[in-house]
Computed example of a mutant assay.
Amino acid sequence: MTAIKPVLLDCTLRDGGNQNDWQFSQADVRAIVSTLDAARVDVIEVGYRGGSGSRKSGTAGPSAHCTPEYLAGLPPVRHAELAVMVVPTACPIEAMADLPDSPVGMIRIAAYPWDVAAVPAYVEAVRALGLRVTVNLMAVSYAELDELVTVAKTVRAELPDVCYVADSFGALHPDAVRDRVELLTAELDCPIGVHMHNNLGLAAANALAAVDAGAGWLDVSLCGMARGAGNLATEQAAAFLTAWPRYATDIDLRGVCEAAEHVAEHVLPRPMVTRRAEIAAGINDHHYYYQHRIEAACARTGLDPWEAGRRLGGARPRRVLDDVVERVCLELQNTNEGQHQ
Rank of each mutant, 00 (worst) to 15 (best):
M1F: 13
T12M: 06
Q23W: 06
A27L: 02
A31H: 15
D42C: 07
E45G: 13
G58C: 06
G61L: 04
P68I: 07
P76F: 05
L82S: 01
V86T: 14
P88V: 03
C91W: 00
E94D: 15
A97M: 01
L99F: 04
Y112Q: 15
A117R: 12
Y122N: 11
Y122W: 11
V126G: 06
R127M: 09
L131G: 12
V140D: 10
T154H: 12
A157P: 01
A166R: 03
D167T: 11
D167Y: 10
G170Q: 06
L172M: 15
P191C: 09
V194T: 15
H197Q: 10
L200V: 12
G214M: 04
G216P: 07
W217T: 10
C223D: 05
G230A: 14
N231W: 07
Y247W: 11
R254G: 15
G255W: 00
E258T: 03
E265P: 00
L268V: 02
P269K: 02
M272D: 05
G282H: 11
N284F: 12
A296I: 00
C298Q: 08
L303R: 12
W306M: 08
G309F: 11
R311E: 14
G314H: 08
A315W: 03
A315F: 04
R316Y: 09
V325Q: 03
L332D: 11
H340C: 14
